[in-house]
Design a protein around this nucleic acid. Structure first.
Lengths: 174, 174
DNA sequence: CTTGAAATCTTATTGGT
DNA sequence: ACCAATAAGATTTCAAG
């Protein structure tokens, strides 16, 4: 009988149907979450390196990664670009107050603009929230002018970011 | 003499010093921007495939990608995770009104929480803006309670996202 | 799941145009 | 600056325990 240094009773939570998860939520064990955290930080690591960090073999890591991609937990592997280096140092959050929800469709046309990073409908006094990144204040003004050209909203309020202390994607809890 | 189908006079804007760019901005030509857009969308493509799309050879693409990483335009290559699959379906933007800037330091401790995705100081009536993603409204309430435990702020206003129509990172203009 | 190994593909480099 | 070809390395897949 061989002693297993990395835990003989590693239960896989995936196979246990103890609690019915929400429809869109995936069943993940601690190793999955640790792997996701590592890949969310740097996806260029080799499976051998990941295996070392996770105390697993390379093929095992590969299989997990494949499953997570297939299940959609990993949506994509993308390059994270530096906005400042792309001549977009000005980050702003724009609240758009609309009178009717019909205006929403008009605002969706803004996703064509590369200045616009996020478009959400939100609760509260404003109906929509935009995260935009422009070259300078003039570019921001042009964008606001374009929004103002659309009929059916009360106005906009812009919050310009002075310093960004943290900016990352969704991370797994562990 | 051979006819070059992909444009014989492809000027490289990199070598021309026509306009003094801002210190942190990198000099990029159209091919660079197109490459960045492709990598920002899907970084798992092979250099051969990228070469096809850019009408370049694999080594040429590789050299450009290497330079862009070295210059910091490409900060990292990361896995984009699905927040809903990670049991974080609730997205909210929290405006924090503070009386003094000294409170900023306290709020920076929040970056330890995996719920918090972004922390900015902003102009306008509120001093700080947080982008948070929680499992449910109760988790959001706990987070807000933690913020309220800090002294020296007027209050918070939360905007809960109902639908996210667009969410992407910084993209290159072309 | 692990180990080991083989096949395939990608990446990195060299020299040449 | 790009291309072609080579060399090196990684990923992926398979088999056996």
């Amino acid at each position: 009988m061989t002693t297993n240094a990395r835990g003989p009773s590693t239960r896989t939570a995936r196979t246990s149907r103890t609690s019915a998860q929400e429809p869109s939520a995936a069943a993940l064990d601690d190793t999955d979450r640790k792997l996701l955290a590592l890949l969310a930080e740097d996806a260029t690591r080799t499976y051998a390196e990941l295996g070392k960090l996770l105390f697993l073999s390379a093929p095992a890591v590969h299989e997990r990664a494949r499953r997570l991609k297939r299940e959609g937990v990993i949506k994509a592997t993308v390059a994270a670009l530096d906005a400042a280096k792309l001549n977009r140092p000005l980050l702003a959050f724009v609240h758009v107050d609309t009178t009717s929800w019909a205006v929403t469709r008009q605002l969706l046309a803004l996703q064509e603009l590369s200045d616009v990073e996020e478009i959400h409908t939100v609760t509260g006094e404003s109906a929509m929230l935009l995260k935009v990144r422009t070259r300078d204040t003039q570019s921001l003004e042009q964008l606001l002018a374009r929004i103002h050209a659309i009929e059916g909203f009360t106005g906009t309020r812009s919050y310009i970011a002075l310093t960004t202390y943290l900016e990352r994607g969704p991370s797994s809890n562990l």
